[in-house]
């Protein structure tokens, strides 16, 4: 059912855990639907220097979280925003059709974390102005 890459990422997921003092946090999905993802990013000079995740979900959700976080680590904000769920699924060696929504969730998680980061930055700038 799953590719070897999916199973490898599921068995030994990378970048797991909660982050202390993140620059941005994205929470997407809903445990009612069977998956929820929290993505934490640390940004320095517009570059995502660290990223971690916590996921409640199936094999595909955990593997997608692991792969997506790998793919955006060290990337600029703009590069990370350019990442699509298809890129994640392809890099995982494909996902079963019913599991494609897991890769969508990972993409949304990254976007939500970046949005949160930008909001925080904006607030910081506003405070400085005052």
């Amino acid at each position: 059912m799953y590719s070897q890459t999916v199973m490898d990422h599921f068995r030994n997921p990378h970048n797991v855990g909660k982050m202390e003092n993140p620059s941005g946090v994205g929470k997407v999905g809903n445990p009612q639907c069977g998956d929820e993802m929290v993505i934490y990013i640390k940004v320095e000079n517009n570059v995502i220097v660290d990223v971690t995740f916590e996921t409640f979900g199936c094999v595909a959700a955990i593997a997608s979280s692991s792969m997506t976080t790998d793919m955006i680590k060290g990337k600029t904000i703009e590069e990370a925003l350019g990442l699509s769920n298809k890129d994640v699924a392809d890099k995982l060696g494909g996902l079963p059709p019913v599991k494609m929504h897991c890769s969508v969730l990972a993409e949304e998680g990254i976007k939500a974390a970046i949005e949160d980061y930008r909001k925080r930055e904006e607030e910081k700038n506003n405070e400085q102005k005052i």
Partner: peptide, 13 residues
């Protein structure tokens, strides 16, 4: 707090 399919595949291993 965890999901069944991920338990199933881990136990399968």
């Amino acid at each position: 707090g965890i999901e069944g399919e991920s338990i199933l595949f881990t136990l399968d291993s």
